[in-house]
Amino acid sequence: MTRIPNPGFGTFRLKDEVLKESVKSALAAGYRHIDTAQMYGNEAEVGEAIRESAVPREEIFLTTKVWHDRLRPGDLEASVDESLDRLGTSYVDLLLIHWPSPDGEVQMDDYLNALKAVQDAGKATHIGVSNFTRAHIDQAIGILGEGTLLTNQVEVHPYLQNRELVAHCQARGIQVTAYMPLAVGKVMQDETLKAIAADHDANPAQIALAWIQARGLVTIPSSTSAGHIQSNLAAFDITLSDEEMARIAELDRGERIADPDFAPAWD
Rank of each mutant, 00 (worst) to 15 (best):
D267A: 05
G227S: 07
E243R: 12
P221C: 01
A234R: 03
K194L: 07
S231L: 00
I34T: 10
M1K: 13
L240D: 05
D85P: 13
T219Q: 08
E17K: 06
Q139R: 14
F61N: 11
E244W: 02
I212W: 13
T133F: 01
I143H: 05
I34E: 08
A44K: 09
K65Y: 13
E244S: 03
P204M: 00
N42P: 10
A258V: 15
S222A: 14
V55F: 12
G128S: 10
K24L: 12
S222F: 12
K194G: 10
L165I: 11
L71E: 01
S225L: 01
E244I: 02
I143M: 04
A124P: 09
A249S: 15
E250M: 05
Q170D: 11
A28R: 12
I207G: 00
H126V: 12
K65L: 07
L217N: 09
S222D: 13
T192I: 08
D267N: 03
F9C: 03
I50T: 11
A258H: 15
K20P: 07
S83W: 09
G142A: 02
A78C: 10
Q213H: 11
A29R: 04
G145L: 07
L209A: 02
A37Q: 04
D75V: 14
H168E: 10
L94K: 03
Q139K: 14
V176N: 09
R163G: 12
I174W: 12
R32Y: 06
Q213R: 08
V166K: 02
L233T: 01
H136S: 01
G30N: 00
S79Y: 08
D138C: 12
S25T: 09
D267F: 05
Y91P: 14
H168K: 11
L160A: 12
A197D: 03
H157W: 07
K20C: 02
Q213D: 14
T2C: 15
L233K: 02
V66F: 07
E243P: 14
D16E: 04
D75S: 13
L84F: 08
L62I: 10
G10E: 03
A208N: 01
R247H: 07
S223H: 05
E59R: 09
S90M: 10
D81C: 14
L144A: 11
L150D: 11
Q170I: 11
A258C: 15
A263K: 07
Q139V: 14
A54S: 15
V55S: 12
P5D: 04
H168Y: 11
A37L: 03
A124Q: 08
G41P: 08
Q153D: 01
L62G: 14
M1F: 14
R134A: 09
L19M: 04
H126G: 15
P221A: 00
R32I: 07
H157M: 01
R32H: 06
F61G: 09
A265T: 15
K15G: 09
A124F: 03
T133M: 00
D237C: 09
N131M: 03
E244K: 02
D138R: 12
T151Q: 11
A202E: 00
I137H: 12
F12Y: 13
H68Y: 14
V176E: 05
L240M: 04
A205K: 00
G74C: 09
D252Q: 01
I34Q: 08
P102I: 01
